[in-house]
Nucleic acid binder design. Structure first.
Lengths: 251, 251
DNA sequence: CGTTTCGTTGAAGAGTGTCAAGGCCAGTGG
DNA sequence: CCACTGGCCTTGACACTCTTCAACGAAACG
């Protein structure tokens, strides 16, 4: 698709010029510090829809900052059990699962044509020796990933199907908003089955709930397109105090 | 209880003399590197059963290496939802949830009288600038925590009640074994409700399943005492291919 | 344009949750 | 020492949420 895809692939990237400064690794760093970040020598890589950025078991070499697109991470067991552990969008860092064991513990796959900056881990180690701000920020990013997963555990461990899906939609909404997109209208890049895997439900349940939310006037759904009409209503569901307006319509 | 509790509390601790070297932060480091670890100036702290090491919202200052005892971490929402996110034993590092936001995102509570080494985070930052092995190892510990949580998400998101409890018991068993305790006989330091919260079940379900496992000859349960009789049978359950010996007794 | 993947919906059933009652055990005060 | 208390655990009966199975429709793709 490119006149010279190889050259493009190996393109040197500068954080200091990147429009994701505010979201990505450079977050909270000074101009000078960000310029030191540039020495991480990230190379860009395009991941066509459906292809893996890395697979479970692959040797771990780099972390990846999502520049563009949408990806999912999946763990799967020998017996064929499968769990989507997260969806990733621009500015998020993926691949941290690999540091511990030298191999990736999950697979990360593009759900639409995506682009990432590959950051060799050895470089992160080196540069973080010299740049306290990077070191500290990197720790914060990993910590936040741990806290995010706590949130998912809360969702999976103690919420009803309705609450899970509402929480999931609000989370997506908020992340789109943080990236300058509409918080009320967006496209679900993943299938119902992938949503279901992530929130611990079957795809039929996800589909039914979306229909029910739509019937209750909380949102409009058209295939992958979602329009959140009543975010407050969704929030109410997440907090457990489901709105009463549905009590009269027995399901 | 101590003649001079304050002095004891502030006791200087040396990783190089600690018998948890093989499990804790020093894992995989050379003698010399471990001696540099000693400069982390950890202080020990005793946590009586039922008391919190830190609470959600507390200012984050230190990480804690568990020296002795058994603790749980819990996240709770304003609405009163509660989720146990992990149980911790000797050699494990807790508190990493606090790095990201400067405040702890969960509460960690002792389930039996416990003892931890407090490691000021600022010291970790300083020392990890100078000691590559510590820096790298610290990253590995955080990464492994992320991977552990992936495993819990898999458990919560895609396993039946039976499979969850079996997986939970095997996990405990393996961790006890790694610490030199029996892998087949141990004491559940937590209540049925806490197990239930962790694996996403109600306490009655946990209780019933323990009884059923006992009836099927997989284990013996006496209050908090568990004796795993047939670990292979439990593994079979986790992997989905439940043993056939129960098929004839319809439930 | 056929084929495949994805999504929706219905009916029926399994698996957990809920509610309730009672038992066991440790700690406490008489 | 015993009775009392409260927390924890067990077990049963029943309700209900979610899954399973199945059929069909819609969109995406070569």
């Amino acid at each position: 698709m490119n006149a010279d895809p190889v050259a493009f692939d190996r393109l040197r990237v500068a954080c200091s010029n990147c429009n994701l400064r505010e979201l990505c690794l450079p977050l909270g760093m000074s101009r000078g510090e960000i310029e030191q970040l540039d020495t991480l020598v990230a190379t860009r890589r395009k991941i066509p829809r459906g292809e893996a950025l890395f697979r479970s078991g692959d040797e771990f070499v780099s972390l990846y900052a999502v520049r563009l697109g949408f990806l999912k991470s999946v763990v799967l067991t020998p017996e064929g059990r499968e769990q989507v552990t997260g969806f990733h969008m621009a500015g998020e860092l993926v691949g941290m699962d690999g540091i511990g064991g030298g191999r990736h513990a999950c697979s990360t796959v593009a759900l639409e044509d995506s682009e990432v900056c590959a950051i060799p881990y050895t470089r992160i180690e080196e540069v973080s020796a010299k740049v306290p701000a990077l070191r500290n920020h990197f720790h914060r990013v990993m910590s936040r990933e741990i806290v995010r997963e706590h949130g998912v555990m809360l969702l999976l461990g103690s919420m009803s199907a309705e609450e899970r899906l509402a929480a999931f939609l609000l989370n997506l909404s908020q992340r789109f908003e943080a990236r300058g997109y509409s918080r009320s209208e967006f496209v679900l890049r993943m299938t119902r089955a992938e949503i279901g895997s992530f929130v611990g439900l079957k795809l039929e349940t996800v589909s039914r709930l979306l229909s029910r939310f739509a019937a209750d006037g909380l949102l409009e759904v058209n295939q992958k397109n979602v329009h959140i009409v009543d975010p407050a209503g969704l929030r109410k569901i997440v907090s457990g105090q489901e709105s009463e307006c549905r009590q009269d319509k027995p399901h």
